[in-house]
Design a binder for these strands. Structure first.
Lengths: 291, 291
DNA sequence: TATTGTATTGCGAAAATTGCAACATTGGGC
DNA sequence: GCCCAATGTTGCAATTTTCGCAATACAATA
């Protein structure tokens, strides 16, 4: 019986919903199903009465739920009591996209420095799209970034805040946006898109779902570059609102009210699951999620 | 933090000796070392101060030891309380070598039937050498047999009793054994050996260690066959004493006092480790080991 | 100095876990 | 009444983890 399994079980015992638990705990439904099956095999008894429509705890499940809660609690207590003995030290490497830097980095860093003054933070910033790559190559231990849409193997996410993904147009060059009645004529309106990254994927899917072949004027790297080009009248772009709000070019940009909206960006921290066994990173993780 | 890891840690925390713990818990020293390293990484602190000569619990180790004992205890309690709710039923498949059948099978079966009357036992018997194969092919869930010398991947053993491995000769044909002074002349004395199996391996190594090329008269399958051929004067053989004692041909056989002795057979139960998560098999396991 | 006992590590192989995609089932909306 | 969306499960392939063996490093002892 593993700690992670216990946590999954406990959450499911509360939510009574595989889908919600799997989303909340960042595992696929498949993994969750099989984890529960594993535990049931080990205990030798069904823990949930379930069909496609409903999930209920069995009597055995209730027993295990109590055990799970106690055990998790005692484990946490042990960790804390041990933490008191030796203060964490060393350093921890962070990668932070510019997007995320505005939104959440300062708060986290501030709290972390107070909690673990002996742990030095090596911070790198750069394009959001690079974060995951750096993580996979073990170039950094934690990234602060927008959360990808799909589950990625072996990665752990914690969403912290959201920011809308908005269409922007230049204020000084209204003719950039070409209308066809009340709607924008996407075949004619030039669009500035990111070379890669989550924003690009979202936009591609948005167009694809509407069977629109957009008139792509330029592909650039980084949200700041998109804002710059849009402000110069090169076309319409898509950026996280957060970035726009912090941009010095903000005055020269207008946000287009286009429906349906793009799904908002979810910003948070992300690391390789295995890293969470490292106490320093674990401490960082908890502090980041603390509010 | 896994149950199995906790058990290993607890044992080591008691024994303070990697070798002994690894033997007692049926894992290789290597696996034990790495398990401890894993836990230490997860806790973030050294649990044992150790070098080649000594092993001592650290303060953190003592904390974890207490946690481990409590957690294992609670887990056991939970299992028992759940077991009360639904009685085990179904069946469990056993393979038992003839050797082991004499020694320990009756007692185990007797106790198990009393403890789990709803679990039916499907028993097969046969040559000892086949047991491990059947286990690997999932043809049976548990075997009762002599324990192999080497650790086998994924297998779990529990030794229950021992019986010496003895050289036997026919009483009626004393000339079968050819002496050279006080010692037996192995180049001339014919030997009946098993085709395969642990007895064969032990004997091969016994000869090899003495740089003797034995005069092998016949290779047969099964200890009973060895006894039969020896009693007919075909040569000298090697069988577990237990089998000899139950043999109807016992009267026609004499045990040779040869030194150094062969290492005794250790008889016990064996199963695939994974099987131990199955509650029925686990119950069987505990009952088998109960005395 | 050789030998024995002890913990650790490199490495290849076996086992466990996971995500994806496909599936089965069921309830609700039109 | 039929289709669609939601939900839990399973086959499969790929990744990750774990393990045993053999080799190694080191110390005490003979």
């Amino acid at each position: 019986m593993d700690m992670e399994e216990l946590r999954l079980f406990r959450h499911l015992a509360e939510s009574l919903h595989f889908g919600r638990t799997s989303r909340a705990c960042h595992v696929t439904p498949s993994a969750l199903t099989r984890t529960i099956q594993r535990i049931e095999a080990e205990v030798g008894e069904r823990l949930f009465d379930r069909d496609n429509r409903s999930v209920r705890l069995t009597r055995a499940g209730e027993g295990l739920k109590q055990y799970a809660e106690e055990t998790i609690e005692r484990w946490k207590a042990l960790k804390e009591s041990l933490a008191g003995e030796a203060t964490l030290h060393g350093d921890i490497s962070l990668y932070c996209s510019v997007t995320a830097a505005y939104g959440i980095l300062p708060g986290i860093l501030d709290r972390f420095r107070k909690a673990c003054p002996e742990v030095h933070i090596k911070l790198q910033t750069g394009d959001a799209a690079q974060g995951l790559t750096r993580l996979r190559n073990n170039e950094v231990e934690v990234i602060i970034d927008a959360l990808p849409d799909k589950q990625a193997t072996g990665l752990e996410f914690m969403p912290l805040t959201e920011t809308p993904l908005v269409f922007i147009a230049p204020l000084a060059f209204p003719e950039t946006v070409i209308y066809e009645g009340p709607e924008i004529d996407w075949r004619k309106t030039p669009v500035i898109v990111a070379e890669q990254g989550l924003g690009r994927e979202r936009l591609d899917r948005w167009f694809a779902a509407r069977k629109i072949l957009p008139n792509i004027y330029a592909q650039v790297a980084g949200n700041e570059a998109i804002i710059a080009m849009v402000s110069l009248g090169c076309g319409v772009g898509v950026v996280p609102l957060l970035v726009l709000e912090k941009s010095p070019l903000q005055e020269q940009i207008t946000v287009l009210d286009i429906s349906p909206r793009l799904a908002p960006f979810s910003l948070g921290v992300c690391t390789v699951k295995k890293n969470l066994r490292n106490p320093k990173i674990q401490a960082f993780w908890e502090i980041a999620g603390a509010r």
